[in-house]
Protein backbone atom coordinates (compact mmCIF):
# COMPACT_ATOMS: atom_id res chain seq x y z
CA UNK A 1 0.00 0.00 0.00
CA UNK A 2 2.87 2.37 0.87
CA UNK A 3 6.22 1.90 -0.83
CA UNK A 4 9.35 4.03 -0.90
CA UNK A 5 11.92 2.93 -3.48
CA UNK A 6 15.45 4.15 -2.91
CA UNK A 7 14.22 7.60 -1.85
CA UNK A 8 16.64 10.41 -1.20
CA UNK A 9 15.52 13.80 0.05
CA UNK A 10 17.83 16.75 0.22
CA UNK A 11 16.45 20.09 1.42
CA UNK A 12 17.78 23.21 -0.28
CA UNK A 13 21.33 23.82 0.83
CA UNK A 14 21.03 21.38 3.69
CA UNK A 15 22.02 17.86 4.52
CA UNK A 16 20.28 14.81 3.11
CA UNK A 17 17.25 14.06 5.31
CA UNK A 18 16.79 10.67 3.65
CA UNK A 19 19.50 8.62 1.96
CA UNK A 20 18.23 5.92 -0.37
CA UNK A 21 15.37 4.82 1.86
CA UNK A 22 13.33 1.83 0.74
CA UNK A 23 10.40 0.58 2.81
CA UNK A 24 7.08 -1.10 2.28
CA UNK A 25 3.87 -1.14 4.32
CA UNK A 26 1.36 -3.80 3.28
CA UNK A 27 -2.33 -3.06 2.83
CA UNK A 28 -4.06 -3.31 6.21
CA UNK A 29 -0.77 -3.28 8.11
CA UNK A 30 0.04 -1.13 11.13
CA UNK A 31 3.68 -0.08 11.09
CA UNK A 32 5.65 2.22 13.32
CA UNK A 33 8.33 4.54 12.07
CA UNK A 34 10.80 5.12 14.83
CA UNK A 35 14.08 6.87 15.31
CA UNK A 36 15.58 9.83 17.09
CA UNK A 37 14.71 13.41 16.28
CA UNK A 38 16.17 14.30 12.89
CA UNK A 39 16.28 10.68 11.77
CA UNK A 40 13.94 11.43 8.87
CA UNK A 41 10.58 10.20 10.22
CA UNK A 42 8.70 13.42 9.48
CA UNK A 43 10.30 13.64 6.05
CA UNK A 44 8.90 10.21 5.16
CA UNK A 45 5.42 11.34 6.21
CA UNK A 46 5.80 14.62 4.30
CA UNK A 47 6.64 12.67 1.17
CA UNK A 48 3.58 10.45 1.64
CA UNK A 49 1.33 13.48 2.28
CA UNK A 50 2.86 15.17 -0.78
CA UNK A 51 4.05 18.13 1.26
CA UNK A 52 7.52 17.44 -0.06
CA UNK A 53 8.81 15.72 -3.19
CA UNK A 54 11.76 13.32 -3.17
CA UNK A 55 15.04 14.46 -4.66
CA UNK A 56 15.48 10.94 -6.05
CA UNK A 57 13.49 7.73 -5.95
CA UNK A 58 9.79 6.90 -6.00
CA UNK A 59 7.00 7.11 -3.43
CA UNK A 60 4.09 4.84 -4.33
CA UNK A 61 0.81 4.89 -2.38
CA UNK A 62 -2.11 2.63 -3.28
CA UNK A 63 -0.47 1.91 -6.63
CA UNK A 64 0.03 5.56 -7.55
CA UNK A 65 3.49 6.97 -8.12
CA UNK A 66 3.21 10.32 -6.34
CA UNK A 67 5.98 11.85 -8.43
CA UNK A 68 3.80 11.50 -11.50
CA UNK A 69 0.74 13.21 -10.05
CA UNK A 70 -0.09 16.54 -11.65
CA UNK A 71 -0.60 19.57 -9.37
CA UNK A 72 -4.36 19.50 -9.93
CA UNK A 73 -4.44 15.83 -8.85
CA UNK A 74 -2.80 16.47 -5.48
CA UNK A 75 -5.98 17.65 -3.62
CA UNK A 76 -7.82 14.52 -4.79
CA UNK A 77 -4.96 12.33 -3.55
CA UNK A 78 -4.84 14.08 -0.18
CA UNK A 79 -8.60 13.55 0.23
CA UNK A 80 -7.90 9.81 0.16
CA UNK A 81 -5.34 9.71 2.96
CA UNK A 82 -5.82 10.53 6.62
CA UNK A 83 -3.22 12.55 8.50
CA UNK A 84 -2.90 12.92 12.27
CA UNK A 85 -0.59 15.62 13.60
CA UNK A 86 1.31 15.92 16.85
CA UNK A 87 -0.20 19.40 17.36
CA UNK A 88 -3.66 18.30 16.17
CA UNK A 89 -4.07 21.28 13.83
CA UNK A 90 -7.65 21.70 15.00
CA UNK A 91 -9.48 24.91 14.12
CA UNK A 92 -9.99 26.80 17.37
CA UNK A 93 -13.01 28.77 16.22
CA UNK A 94 -14.99 25.69 15.16
CA UNK A 95 -16.81 23.10 17.20
CA UNK A 96 -15.65 19.50 17.45
CA UNK A 97 -18.35 18.56 14.93
CA UNK A 98 -17.24 21.25 12.45
CA UNK A 99 -13.59 20.20 12.75
CA UNK A 100 -14.41 16.60 11.94
CA UNK A 101 -16.78 17.61 9.15
CA UNK A 102 -14.13 19.63 7.30
CA UNK A 103 -12.73 16.79 5.12
CA UNK A 104 -16.27 15.87 4.07
CA UNK A 105 -17.16 19.50 3.29
CA UNK A 106 -14.03 19.65 1.13
CA UNK A 107 -15.13 16.60 -0.85
CA UNK A 108 -18.62 18.03 -1.37
CA UNK A 109 -20.45 15.41 0.68
CA UNK A 110 -24.15 16.13 1.30
CA UNK A 111 -25.19 17.57 4.66
CA UNK A 112 -27.14 14.51 5.79
CA UNK A 113 -24.26 12.16 4.98
CA UNK A 114 -21.84 14.54 6.72
CA UNK A 115 -23.97 14.43 9.87
CA UNK A 116 -24.12 10.65 9.83
CA UNK A 117 -20.41 10.12 9.23
CA UNK A 118 -19.18 12.82 11.60
CA UNK A 119 -21.23 11.36 14.46
CA UNK A 120 -20.01 7.87 13.61
CA UNK A 121 -16.38 9.09 13.72
CA UNK A 122 -16.92 10.98 16.97
CA UNK A 123 -18.54 7.85 18.41
CA UNK A 124 -15.53 5.77 17.36
CA UNK A 125 -13.17 8.02 19.30
CA UNK A 126 -15.54 8.38 22.25
CA UNK A 127 -16.39 12.06 21.75
CA UNK A 128 -19.98 11.92 20.56
CA UNK A 129 -21.16 13.85 23.59
CA UNK A 130 -18.64 16.64 22.85
CA UNK A 131 -19.67 17.50 19.31
CA UNK A 132 -20.68 21.08 20.15
CA UNK A 133 -17.55 21.82 22.17
CA UNK A 134 -14.72 23.93 20.74
CA UNK A 135 -11.33 22.17 20.88
CA UNK A 136 -9.94 24.45 23.60
CA UNK A 137 -12.49 23.07 26.06
CA UNK A 138 -11.30 19.49 25.50
CA UNK A 139 -8.42 17.78 27.27
CA UNK A 140 -5.16 17.05 25.43
CA UNK A 141 -6.17 13.42 24.95
CA UNK A 142 -9.61 14.40 23.71
CA UNK A 143 -8.09 16.88 21.28
CA UNK A 144 -5.83 14.18 19.88
CA UNK A 145 -8.79 11.82 19.54
CA UNK A 146 -10.68 14.60 17.78
CA UNK A 147 -7.78 14.91 15.33
CA UNK A 148 -7.99 11.17 14.73
CA UNK A 149 -11.77 11.42 14.14
CA UNK A 150 -11.11 14.08 11.50
CA UNK A 151 -8.48 11.86 9.86
CA UNK A 152 -10.76 8.81 9.65
CA UNK A 153 -14.10 10.47 8.86
CA UNK A 154 -13.55 10.23 5.11
CA UNK A 155 -12.67 6.53 5.53
CA UNK A 156 -9.18 6.73 4.05
CA UNK A 157 -7.35 3.60 2.99
CA UNK A 158 -4.14 4.99 4.44
CA UNK A 159 -3.61 6.88 7.68
CA UNK A 160 -0.32 8.47 8.62
CA UNK A 161 0.39 10.00 12.00
CA UNK A 162 3.31 12.17 13.07
CA UNK A 163 4.17 11.74 16.75
CA UNK A 164 0.46 11.55 17.67
CA UNK A 165 1.29 10.93 21.32
CA UNK A 166 4.15 13.40 21.56
CA UNK A 167 2.21 15.86 23.71
CA UNK A 168 0.38 13.30 25.86
CA UNK A 169 1.16 11.76 29.20
CA UNK A 170 1.82 7.96 29.19
CA UNK A 171 -1.75 6.92 30.04
CA UNK A 172 -3.29 9.12 27.37
CA UNK A 173 -0.63 8.00 24.88
CA UNK A 174 -1.59 4.36 25.44
CA UNK A 175 -5.23 5.28 25.04
CA UNK A 176 -4.60 6.96 21.69
CA UNK A 177 -2.40 4.09 20.47
CA UNK A 178 -5.11 1.62 21.40
CA UNK A 179 -7.50 3.65 19.29
CA UNK A 180 -5.13 3.37 16.32
CA UNK A 181 -4.91 -0.36 16.91
CA UNK A 182 -8.69 -0.71 16.82
CA UNK A 183 -8.91 1.29 13.58
CA UNK A 184 -6.22 -0.89 12.05
CA UNK A 185 -8.16 -3.99 12.93
CA UNK A 186 -10.94 -2.91 10.58
CA UNK A 187 -8.48 -2.77 7.66
CA UNK A 188 -6.95 0.71 7.63
CA UNK A 189 -3.28 0.84 6.62
CA UNK A 190 -1.29 2.88 9.11
CA UNK A 191 2.16 4.32 9.37
CA UNK A 192 2.78 6.01 12.70
CA UNK A 193 5.92 7.99 13.41
CA UNK A 194 6.97 7.90 17.05
CA UNK A 195 10.23 8.27 18.92
CA UNK A 196 8.76 6.57 22.00
CA UNK A 197 10.13 3.02 21.71
CA UNK A 198 8.57 1.95 25.02
CA UNK A 199 5.15 2.85 23.73
CA UNK A 200 5.71 1.19 20.36
CA UNK A 201 6.81 -2.04 22.03
CA UNK A 202 3.36 -2.42 23.58
CA UNK A 203 1.90 -3.15 20.17
CA UNK A 204 2.44 -6.15 17.94
CA UNK A 205 3.43 -4.22 14.89
CA UNK A 206 6.36 -3.91 12.59
CA UNK A 207 8.82 -1.22 13.55
CA UNK A 208 10.78 0.59 10.84
CA UNK A 209 13.74 2.31 12.41
CA UNK A 210 15.38 5.26 10.77
CA UNK A 211 18.77 6.59 11.75
CA UNK A 212 20.61 9.37 10.00
CA UNK A 213 18.18 9.26 7.08
CA UNK A 214 18.58 5.55 6.46
CA UNK A 215 16.50 2.48 7.36
CA UNK A 216 18.31 0.62 10.10
CA UNK A 217 16.09 -2.38 10.50
CA UNK A 218 12.46 -3.41 10.36
CA UNK A 219 11.86 -5.79 13.23
CA UNK A 220 8.41 -6.75 14.33
CA UNK A 221 7.72 -5.36 17.78
CA UNK A 222 6.53 -7.97 20.21
CA UNK A 223 2.84 -8.17 20.92
CA UNK A 224 2.56 -7.79 24.67
CA UNK A 225 -0.33 -8.52 26.93
CA UNK A 226 -0.61 -4.87 27.77
CA UNK A 227 -1.86 -4.23 24.22
CA UNK A 228 -5.15 -5.84 25.01
CA UNK A 229 -5.24 -4.30 28.44
CA UNK A 230 -5.19 -0.73 27.22
CA UNK A 231 -8.53 0.85 27.70
CA UNK A 232 -9.85 3.09 24.89
Amino acid sequence: MIRLDNVTKRYDGAREALKGVSLHVEAGELAFLTGRSGAGKSTVLKLIALIEHPTRGNVIVDGRNLGKLKDREIPGYRQQIGVVFQDNKLLADRSAYENVALPLIITGTGQREIGRRVRAALDQVGLLDRERYPPRTLSAGEQQRLGIARAIVSRPKVLIADEPTGNLDPDLALEVMALFKRLNEVGMTMLIASHDLHLVEHFGARCITLTGGQVLETPVAPLTESTGAVSP
Partner: peptide, 16 residues
Amino acid sequence: SAEIEVAKLLGATDAF
Protein backbone atom coordinates in the same frame (compact mmCIF):
# COMPACT_ATOMS: atom_id res chain seq x y z
CA SER B 1 -3.46 30.96 7.31
CA ALA B 2 -3.69 28.08 9.83
CA GLU B 3 -7.15 27.17 8.58
CA ILE B 4 -6.01 27.40 4.95
CA GLU B 5 -3.01 25.21 5.69
CA VAL B 6 -5.17 22.53 7.33
CA ALA B 7 -7.75 22.68 4.53
CA LYS B 8 -5.04 22.20 1.90
CA LEU B 9 -3.57 19.30 3.83
CA LEU B 10 -7.00 17.67 3.94
CA GLY B 11 -7.27 17.96 0.16
CA ALA B 12 -8.98 21.30 -0.41
CA THR B 13 -8.68 22.50 -3.99
CA ASP B 14 -7.55 26.03 -4.81
CA ALA B 15 -11.15 26.89 -5.75
CA PHE B 16 -12.40 25.68 -2.36
